[in-house]
Design a protein around this nucleic acid. Structure first.
Length: 823
RNA sequence: GCCCCGGUAGCCCAACGGCAGAGGCAAUGUGCUCAAACCACAUCCAGUGUGAGUUCGAAUCUCACCCGGGGCACCA
């Protein structure tokens, strides 16, 4: 056997097939077919990349996983929408532009071309005709249009409030972008600033965003559903209203209305407007002083759990609606301005935070639930569990918490002092950014007309040409410096006005890109509603866990908002969601400082595209991390060569009648194809590869020591291997397909038809257990009846010996596989 | 503190409540070779984190605990 028969050149086949595939353009999605319902659709989507340099191992993994399902669906006869694009607005381009004294577009579009070339080489089944970039004016025109659409619906608004501020990036951040008090991107300690900013009213959909998670539970990976649930943070409780002398009544949210009898004071968030409204003249200065201290705190300070409670008395009292008592109203930073109503009723006996505050300030503690534990007033430990109500009027003597809460709510509702309610932790989405490389907010501020939307026919509001040092962060938006751009005539009155100088959070761009893919070149609308309804929602979305709450939640919000705007008829964008694990090395995240980075380009050069893809898919279930030190791309190379070698051994002609082939091998082939289809449906891609390996092993054995290379069953098996392998290793598969005497491309081959008769064995092994331990095996027909199997088992000499004359008390029969005899 | 997910050979991972091992890596041996690589074949290896429970039968279901990973957290 010559060298060339044992190996193929992995790089030569890449060169060979790329232009062929390009020409065949196999993966173009046909809008007409789905529009007419001519074929069932599938929409496969992977989070589009940000163009920072070339692709890395993480991209390689998600792209490989994604391509398996996209190619599989195509084989199964679905019309598949499989687009790719770039999330190309963002800070790294801006920082590069400052560094290199150039325009952010230079860095951005150069990297896009690099990544595009890498993706093509990587052999992916994308429909490149739908490629989009969020930084193109043709795209962000519609981002701006959608912003205005949401504003029309009351879902985008401007307000002044303390916001998260990253002193390093010199921009505000959404709550979701603050992790442990630090900027998610650069790690700088986040501070607060009082600014007027744009928000999307995500809270308007809190209930629906939360409730629909139940439907996503089974088709989304559990931890992401859990993360969203925690982030939205639903709490059941009540609103309770307290009269305040000389003021409007104040309302609080509580999850424990049943402890209202134990409320002894009130606390208002110091930085809430309510505190300033309520404070008496005597106490005004004290509050001002306290606020100075509070504003100095960073989130990191606030997150410290056991720091001492501070606060000031506001000089007013509220009336407890059930006891009639006068309760002092305090301000403190332990109450959050933007959760609930920004004020609480304090029940120190049964809430540790309130108890801590009461003890520092010398406020009364009254126990209203006797849990059998020490009295909190003496112990300093609040009791939060179930117990018997005391000092609680109508609740006294009862002990069921749930019933107590319902009864308290009923009393409040009767008296007009409150009602049951559900509160969410979710906040509105702060979308203004004081940076350059994003979509400008299409609003003009006019001294006469106020906020005026830029008319639709004037969109897009294009970015002014700024570069290099113009973009240096200075705490206000760089766009403000482009005076020619900023100063415009008011669209409403024609008078002098100024443009909004902030740009949108880049998460806005990515909240609707999956809709744009259905009609990416349409210059009359954001997306074609009919096509969006035909293609959507996305049948499988794959991406990283880092977007578990950010992007996925925002995309869900946008989908609901656009549905309510009449632009879509689906409620949830992603029917199934799969998260990809990280590619790590030697137990650690890859990083420059650790020196353990693995370069994708180097891996591709060493092992070839197919082997790298196969390694990533085979290594573990998709959501698990892959430790590159634990896997063997060399092993993948060997396997692929072994599979390929089969195609050279087949001696029967293409189209040979396989029905006369070796039955044993045919059964293996059909069973494997059958099982792999099921595995693919549940995204168990690593097992798919393992099963393909088994088929290769079985075929090898048949050739060498079984039916021989001329048997039609060998051709059938090898063709099946080529088709199965094309999901993961398209170059090897294509090469096999050609050697098997077929025209390119294997991607257009018919998925092997499974013959149900070949899935059934003539005989199966039934195990006979006695007391759950295996004592004998019987070869039986798969159709054997339970009574026949039982009789056969009891007649078996090994079984009678094991029973040893003992009384048979019970026989469990699971024909045809198992008999268990209990003695 | 609350909520999710996981724990199976040296390693990565399989196993509708029914024989714990499919596949791969590593290791060892044999064949091929002048030799090595490649290739082929073979061998080796765990009783499923711990403890209870349910069951004829538990890696699988239930409970508690331990360990690891993730989400939320002064959220009332």
């Amino acid at each position: 056997m010559s060298e060339t028969d044992v190996h193929y050149d992995v790089h030569a086949v890449e060169e060979k097939w790329l232009p062929v595939w390009e020409k065949l353009d196999t993966f173009r999605a046909d809008d007409d077919v789905v529009r007419s319902g001519g074929r069932e659709k599938r929409y496969a989507l992977t989070m589009f990349p940000y163009p920072s340099g070339d692709l890395h191992m993480g991209h390689a993994e998600v792209l490989a996983l994604h391509d398996v399902i996209a190619r599989y669906w195509r084989f199964r006869g679905y019309e598949v929408l499989n687009p790719m694009g770039w999330d190309s607005f963002g800070l790294p381009a801006e920082n590069a532009a400052i560094r290199n004294d150039e325009h952010p577009a230079t860095y951005t579009y150069a990297n896009i071309e690099t990544q595009l070339a890498s993706m093509k080489r990587y052999g992916l089944s994308f429909d490149w005709s739908r490629r989009l970039h969020t930084s193109d004016p043709e795209y962000y025109r519609w981002t701006q249009w959608l912003f205005l659409k949401l504003r029309e619906q009351g879902l985008a608004y401007r307000k002044n409030s303390p916001v998260n501020w990253c002193p390093n990036d010199q921009t505000v951040l959404a709550n979701e972008q603050v992790v442990d008090g630090a900027c998610e991107r650069c790690g700088a300690e986040v501070t607060k600033r009082e600014l007027t900013q744009w928000y999307f009213r995500t809270t308007a959909y809190a209930q629906e965003l939360y409730d629909r998670l139940d439907d996503l539970q089974s088709a989304w990976i559990g931890k992401v559903v859990n993360a969203q649930r925690n982030w939205i943070g639903r709490s059941e409780g009540a609103h309770v209203t307290f009269e305040v002398e000389g003021h409007e009544p104040m309302t609080v949210f509580t999850t424990r209305p049943d402890t209202l009898w134990g409320a002894t004071f009130m606390v208002v968030a110091a930085d809430a407007a309510l505190a300033t409204e309520l404070v008496s003249d005597d106490q005004r200065q004290a509050l001002e002083d306290y606020l100075v201290d509070v504003r100095k705190e960073t989130d990191i300070d606030r997150l410290a759990t056991d720091r001492p409670k501070t606060g000031v008395f506001l000089g007013v009292h509220a009336t407890n609606p059930v006891t009639g008592e006068q309760m002092p109203v305090w301000a403190s930073d332990y109450v959050l301005a933007d959760y609930g109503t920004g004020a609480i009723m304090a029940v120190p006996a049964h809430d540790q935070r309130d108890l801590d505050f009461a003890r520092v300030m010398g406020l009364p503690v009254r126990r209203v639930v006797d849990t059998g534990e020490d009295n909190p007033e003496e112990s300093g430990v609040a009791t939060t569990g179930d117990g018997v109500y005391v000092n609680s009027g109508p609740l006294d003597g009862k002990s069921d918490k749930a019933a107590g809460i319902s009864e308290a709510i009923a009393i409040l509702e009767r008296n007009g002092h409150g009602s049951g309610t559900i509160n969410f932790r979710l906040r509105d989405w702060l979308l203004s950014r004081q940076r350059y490389w994003g979509a400008p907010i299409p609003i003009v501020h006019c001294p006469v007309d106020g906020e005026v939307p830029v008319p639709e026919d004037q969109l897009p509001v294009e970015l002014p040409e700024l570069r290099g040092a113009d973009l240096k962060p200075k705490g206000t938006s760089p766009l403000g410096a482009a005076t020619d751009w900023v100063n415009v005539a008011c669209p409403a009155c024609g008078g002098p006005a100024t443009r909004d100088t902030d740009t949108m959070d880049t998460f806005v761009d990515s909240s609707w890109y999956f809709m744009r893919y259905v009609s990416p070149h349409d210059d009359t609308q954001a997306f074609d509603t009919e096509l969006a309804n035909a293609w959507g929602p996305i049948d499988l979305y794959i991406g990283g866990d880092e977007h578990a709450v950010l992007h996925l939640l925002y995309a869900r919000f946008f989908t609901k908002a656009l549905r309510d705007a009449g632009l879509l008829d689906w409620d949830e964008p992603f029917s199934a969601y799969l998260s990809q694990g990280k590619v790590i090395n030697n137990g650690r995240k890859m990083s420059k400082s650790l020196g353990n980075g693995v370069n994708l380009g180097d891996q591709l050069a060493e092992f070839g595209v197919d082997a790298v893809r196969l390694t990533l898919v085979f290594a573990s279930p998709p959501e698990d991390n892959i430790d590159w030190a634990d896997v063997s791309p060399g092993g993948s190379v060997r396997f692929l060569q072994r599979a390929w070698r089969l195609s050279g051994d087949v001696t029967s002609a293409p189209g040979v009648d396989v029905s006369t082939g070796d039955v044993a091998l045919r059964k293996i082939t059909h069973k494997t194809v059958h099982e792999i289809a099921q595995l693919l449906e549940s995204y168990r891609f690593n097992v798919v590869v393992a099963r393909t390996m088994e088929l290769v092993n079985a075929t090898r054995k048949a050739i060498d020591s079984g039916c021989g290379p001329a048997d039609p069953a060998v051709r059938e098996a090898t063709e099946a291997v080529a088709i199965l392998l094309s999901l993961v290793a398209p170059y090897t598969a294509e090469e096999m397909w050609e050697r098997l005497g077929h025209e390119p491309t294997v991607a257009q081959a018919a998925w092997p038809t499974v013959d149900p008769e070949l899935l059934v064995d003539e005989s199966v092994t039934a195990v006979v257990q006695i007391q759950g331990k295996v004592r004998a095996r019987l070869e039986v027909s798969p159709g054997i009846s339970e009574s026949d199997l039982e009789a056969a088992a009891l007649a078996d000499p090994a079984v009678t010996k094991a029973i040893d004359g003992r009384q048979v008390r019970k026989v469990i029969v699971r024909a045809p596989k198992l008999v268990n005899i209990v003695v």
